[in-house]
Design a protein around this nucleic acid. Sequence first.
DNA 1: CTACAGGCTGGTG
DNA 2: CACCAGCCTGTA
Length: 293
Amino acid sequence: MYRIQIKDMDFEQIARSGQCFRMEPNEEEHGVWRIAASGRYVEAVKEDDVFLFSCGEKEFQDMWAGYFDLQTDYGGFKKRVDSEDSYLKEAMEWGWGVRILRQDLWEMLVTFLISQNNNITRITGSVKEICKRFGEKRIGLGLAVSSDGGWVERSKSYDAFPEPEDLSSAGLRGLAGLGLGYRDKYILSIAKACSGPEGREWLLRLKEADYTSAHSLLMEQYGIGRKVADCICLFGLHHVGAFPVDTHVRQILEVHYPQGFPLERYQEYAGILQQYMFYYKVNKIPRGKLGSI
DNA sequence: CTACAGGCTGGTG
DNA sequence: CACCAGCCTGTA
């Protein structure tokens, strides 16, 4: 286990920010989060700004510190936004624990192809089913309450995200019943594009490309348009200048930024601000609906 | 029943 | 270039 203090981070908020669909509460252990990414698995609990992870320090530093983007000071972004931009300030205050995870590129390609014209519940279900059906079953370390009330490590099974070859060999018939709808052919196409040595080389080129080149490389793929390409740039390549505009963000811009969002001012990190705004719009409790919840 | 999900493709004007 | 119907399917 590894204990560490981390500012500006909250699992609940990250999990609800629509960037990650493989972070979920452990139903058996209250307060424990299950996190699967890049073929690895960890569980964690949080108390204020102190986190306990089920892995050792080396595994944490080698894998999870990067995944949670700990080298980036998110508090700094909060200080740099326009002090007169009340909507953005509210959004960042509401989603104080949102960060941009450094997730696996291949996983993001599949995930955000699924996300188009779709809702978060269904996306999560599809991703989970894909891992269950095609991913390798593995044993990782989780957390459990010990007899003295503290935490102990306990082995836990999980499904790794499948490899491109696993999906390309499945074919359209194999991809049926996952709730993908018409997106199945897009998934199959990207799986083929990422398979084999040539596919891995293409992924590598994508990782080495700058934002503009990466975006146009992505747009060449079947089923990837402007918005999905921006999501993959932001969440799979960590080009935090990318600013995906979906229906929610478009509505935010229409209502709160009729003169246009100041993209020039925030060129270097607009995607991070987008994430706070998205989270705020999707998760804030609407006035008048308080009674019904 | 309709409307809507973190849109894209392919066809038309 | 802009515009837009159609698309899978679960949920409100």
